[in-house]
Amino acid sequence: MELTVITEHATYTHIAISGKLDIAGVAEIENHFIEVTAGRKVSAIIDVSGVTFTGSMGLRLFLRASKSLSQEKKKLILLDPQPMVNEVLVDSGIKGVVAVEKSLEAALALAQA
């Protein structure tokens, strides 16, 4: 897994992750991911277009960050998931607490709303 910080804006964080979000992949990025999302206490846009797979630990990662941000009234926004990842997000029910957007403009609008 790779995690790239794109923007650390005063009102939002924009990062990109790529690779397989399986147990091993999550272990590689978990601490850094939490630090730059939940740790900044501002809404986070996660570009997941490069994520080819997410398993239960990947969902847990999103849920953990989202729950932490929601305590600050902030959002976790997943940007442009691949169809297979999107299907997992739908089946998991996580879309109820994690926003999913197709475009960066829409994600930015939601992050700064």
Partner: peptide
């Protein structure tokens, strides 16, 4: 809750009906 759908094949059908309510984990 967060689970893959079950698949129901009516008799003679080769396409499944996906049984899921898309609840949260």
């Amino acid at each position: 809750g967060g689970h893959p759908p079950a698949l129901l094949f009516p008799p003679g059908a080769n396409e499944a009906k996906k049984l899921s309510t898309h609840g949260m984990m």
